[in-house]
Design a protein around this nucleic acid. Structure first.
Lengths: 233, 233
DNA sequence: CCAAAAGTGTTCTTTATACACCCATGT
DNA sequence: ACATGGGTGTATAAAGAACACTTTTGG
């Protein structure tokens, strides 16, 4: 028996992988986390962290495990994006990929390459290098998902520090939506949601009126969500 | 060599299936299409049409093929819902399922059981029998998807005939959203979208003022969509 | 004092909500 | 004629958009 081919089935089966699209925000632009592939195929190309599903883990657990192994990121809340199944999308044979995405506070984590990855690095969306496989299509899907979602769910806060100013939040919304918002109306509207807790602290060392810090009232949001209210910006 | 086990791989692989959640509307309630399973596991139980992925087809093509084989439905526009990957969700072993959903005009199609299915039948959402596998969880996911979607995209028209009256459309919205809407405000709002074409025909044989027929202006909707407008009810 | 950006208030327009009322059709 | 549900109008309230003005900070 060929010991390198010990798993045999009556019908052919595809390989299954999970990939992670991790977004961050540097205060100005949205960034996405890529790894440089160490192995063929596409060695040297940039790609999303991800890898093959083990038989005893869900696709979500697989995505988290691979994310940790390749970038050092841990305890990230990921959400399923889409499953890519086109035959021919991977030169190794039939591979289907379940893609997950997450929005994280870049400062909470430090990135370190490991495993299959030569390096892991943040790229802003206008400087994305050529990607392996069909990953640029996956990226497009992820971007349009967060664009659609941010209008109706308070996912923006996941990208900012625990404490943040309203102008910072506005720059984030503008970066994701790609539009300019009126500073004054944005301020009033975001306060009107009742989901911000004002802190007794202002931003220091700015040569103009210092903006206040706020934090996001997650408990209140969860209460309101359960009652079926809807957030909207 | 064991001819029933001719596909061998270095690492174990899960089986992959595609399932279809097909919604219809009978003028009063939302219905969903189920098949009665002919084979084990769960023989005799109701389930969504679906089956194993072939190696030369995408998961979407697989879903359409299985839908046709098991119910006779053809040319249905399906959309990916979610991929279910929990280990243990299928007694046959590790199976992941990519679920698709569709909204169809029940009158356009006639349903006929075939293949793995003893029969295919529409069930209204308050009369769903016990389902095979984790299909009741999948159904919940599909219902909450269409509830979320109908507010912002004109998917309701897919469930109605080519020509329909505004009160019919309203009953559909009420069935999906589970709320009562004001007849008069609904009328004005749906007309204000500019996406309905008024036909020179009224509903016949009703013992009250006959409502006009309308059709959905798909071309206009696509034009407006491209310009980034957003539909909202 | 000045520049720059934060924060507040005010006006105007648009949209949403709640109904009163009229209209057409079959019995 | 009347019951039934379709269709129109209108008044009020709430939300959104535009923008003038005031406040705070560092230089």
């Amino acid at each position: 028996m060929d010991s390198t081919r010990e798993y045999c089935y009556k019908y052919p089966r595809p390989s299954v992988t999970s990939d992670c699209i991790i977004f961050g925000f540097d205060g100005d632009k949205i960034r996405v986390l890529l790894i440089e592939r160490a192995n063929e195929p596409y060695a040297g190309r940039w790609a999303f962290p991800g890898g093959f599903l083990d038989m005893d883990e869900s696709a979500e657990d697989c995505a988290k495990r691979e994310l940790f192994e390749e970038t050092g990121l841990k305890n990230v809340f990921i959400e399923q994006l889409y499953t890519f199944t086109q035959p021919g999308r991977d030169p190794r044979g039939r591979v289907i990929t379940i893609a997950y995405y997450a929005l994280i506070k870049q400062t909470d984590y430090s990135i370190t390459a490991g495993d299959d990855a030569k390096q892991a690095q943040w790229f802003s969306l206008d400087e994305i290098p050529p990607l392996a496989f069909d990953h640029s299509r996956i990226l497009q899907a992820a971007i349009s998902r967060i664009k659609g979602k941010i209008r109706y769910q308070p996912i923006g806060f996941e990208l900012l520090n625990e404490k943040f100013t309203i102008p910072e939040l506005q720059r984030l919304y503008e970066a994701i939506l790609g539009v300019q918002l009126d500073r004054r109306n944005f301020h009033r509207k975001i306060i009107a949601t009742g989901l911000l807790i004002q802190l007794d602290e202002k931003k220091a060392n700015v040569s103009h009126r210092a903006p206040r810090y706020f934090s996001f009232d997650k408990e209140k949001y969860e209460q309101l969500s359960r009652r079926g209210f809807n957030f909207e910006i």
